[in-house]
Amino acid sequence: MTSRAPIIQLRDVTKTYGAGSTAFRALNGIDLDIKAGEFVAIMGSSGSGKSTLMNILGCLDSPTSGRYLFAGCAVEGLSKEQRALIRRHYLGFVFQGYNLLARTSALENVELPLLYRGMSRGERREQARRALDAVGLLPWRHHASNELSGGQQQRVAVARAIATSPRVLFADEPTGNLDTKVSREVMELITDLNRTQGITAVMVTHEPEMAGYADRIVTVVDGTIASDSRRRGDGVESEVA
């Protein structure tokens, strides 16, 4: 996690939906480098292409053209299965709607991605407890997800995303369903994980206040990057065009 080389490099990435006269170009030549340890917020209005960009960055979707190097490896041409394996081993996700399994304890929810990694029961328990402890919910580990408040549920979702020690944590509108106070708590949690544990975080949001927690704000307008600014210079020089 101390590597200074970009963990994510996009070069002239485009994404087109449909074909022929009905084709819609959602991304139009994106170049983006994200270094390990960075906390990047991707902003933009709805329809700007920020969600498409997020899906491509998170290997949920593949670009129509262009290059995507993840930790130096080209992933733009990978199959559905191969992308799933990248997500399993290197990425963590937090969604707007939490997406926890209902009637399932917080601990078992956090264990879920570890289960797909084929980890043994003991290891799984241990790692899930550690992740829950990191988000301050260890005492709630046996509560079913539907017994928790929205903020707590989102913290469980963060724990689930970091339980696998991912190279990059993706958060898609993580505060979209939360009120301001709880939103701040969740943002402070992500910021804290980024600072203290060095987790690279990429967050999509349309709220400037939430984007303000990030080190760097990338604004997407009509499928291109309109601006890329650093909020605070902490020794890292911005080279991004």
């Binding site: 799933a84 997500r87 081993h89 990425l91 963590g92 996700f93 997406n99 991605p113």
Partner: peptide
């Protein structure tokens, strides 16, 4: 459906 989407996004393979 959402649960399946979640499982896939955290790395479950279609065959899994």
């Amino acid at each position: 459906t959402r649960e399946i989407g979640l499982r896939m996004s955290i790395g479950a393979l279609p065959r899994e």
